[in-house]
Design a protein around this nucleic acid. Structure first.
Lengths: 73, 73
DNA sequence: GATGAAAAGTGACTCTTATGCCGTTGCACA
DNA sequence: TGTGCAACGGCATAAGAGTCACTTTTCATC
């Protein structure tokens, strides 16, 4: 599966777990609300810096974010 | 520490473990040799797709790549 | 120590794409 | 029928991807 879709799915999963909206997460990560939609739906190929902002906004870290079966070969 | 430097360091670590040159890794990942240098030294803010190519070239996966103390908060 | 080759790093450049920001739409539900 | 949330398309601009000529470092061998 496409890596951007996997990442979008993972962001959505962690966001729902926190019970916040895309807009709230976007504000925490300091990115645009409509951009966050595109990231979650796998339509954007994000850079590491942006992904870091989102991961921090989700109150987690890269190790935890990628510690998921979808990211194991 | 800057996330791009952390990632560059991690790539270097795994590359050395495989005992191959930047050029060899660059060829495997299908990126330019000088581009690989810049990634390893943290001078590029790579996109997820490029990082994926490098991770695959290193014969690993995202889960393993980020399963490292540098990526835990 | 000198020397040469392989490996790694740098600066500058073009081309491509990520990012930020619009307006608008669809949906659920009070 | 209005409000919150999510998704879409398009555009401008900033920044990433890709490449080249050149320099510096590394290191084995003399």
């Amino acid at each position: 599966m496409d890596i951007n879709i996997k990442i979008g799915d993972r962001i959505r999963e962690l966001r729902k777990r926190k019970e916040i909206s895309q807009e709230a997460l976007a504000n925490l990560a300091e990115v645009d609300r409509t951009y966050m939609t595109k990231v979650e739906t796998g339509k954007r190929n994000v850079t590491v810096k942006i992904l870091e902002k989102i991961i921090i906004a989700l109150d987690t870290d890269f190790g935890t974010f990628f510690n998921n079966n979808e990211f194991k070969k």
